[in-house]
């Protein structure tokens, strides 16, 4: 071992060099590949039908999406919900089409929200699976719609008027964001509604 210790300086430089090689090989190159192949996209070019009454123009809609995303981060929803569908374990049957890199090339995915744990279901195909009202009721008190749910309630995004809770701006923005998730894919495959409620039998 004297040998190694004699050349400790050389080895230390070698260690750092390998760190940078790993960084280049496993971060810089794949990042560059993705950025080259998939151009960055706008998050919305027009207001979707569902939101024509709520948001007058695309800029206010985009602002709402950003705000919704910020709440999603603030409440750490991403610790309980993932945002990618894997090409394994029958996930394309449960959630919808498998995720592609291009879907994530936009500002709402900066920082990325892939997530590493599914206490609740994946949300990358959440768009139009449920109605806005379902989402409001669910956010206000999840067990009122899904009795066995362990999802936290978020009543502070609602204000009670005449005994009826009404969504505040924040809740509307959050739900607009949820309805946006996967909406670029939904156009191609109609709706994901069938996936969650009546999953098809597994492939042979």
């Amino acid at each position: 071992m004297d040998f190694i210790e004699k050349f400790s300086g050389v080895f230390l430089i070698a260690g750092l060099f390998l760190f940078f090689m790993a960084f280049i090989g496993l971060a810089v190159v794949p990042v560059w590949m993705v950025d080259k192949v998939e151009p960055r996209q706008e998050i919305a070019t027009s207001v979707p039908k569902l939101y024509l009454d709520t948001y007058s123009d695309v800029e206010t809609y985009k602002a709402a999406l950003r705000k919704g995303r910020d709440i999603y981060i603030a409440e750490a929803c991403w610790h309980c919900h993932s945002q990618y569908v894997r090409p394994t374990a029958n996930e394309e049957l449960r959630y919808g089409p498998v995720s592609m890199p291009g879907e994530y090339q936009n500002e709402l995915n900066l920082p990325q929200l892939f997530g590493t744990r599914r206490v609740g279901p994946d949300l990358s195909r959440a768009a139009y699976k449920k109605s806005n009202d379902w989402h409001y009721a669910h956010l206000y008190n999840p067990t009122s719609v899904v009795p066995q749910s362990v999802m936290p309630s978020y009543p502070w995004y609602f204000e009670v008027k005449d005994g009826v809770p009404q969504p505040k701006e924040e809740a509307k923005a959050l739900v607009a964001y949820l309805q946006w998730l996967g909406s670029s894919v939904v156009e191609k495959s109609e709706s994901f509604a069938s996936y969650i409620d009546n999953p098809l039998p597994p492939k042979e």
Partner: peptide, 12 residues
């Protein structure tokens, strides 16, 4: 880096 690229780095 957004999305997939960001995830590559976060993972590292």
């Amino acid at each position: 880096y957004p999305g997939t690229s960001g995830a590559t780095i976060t993972s590292m």
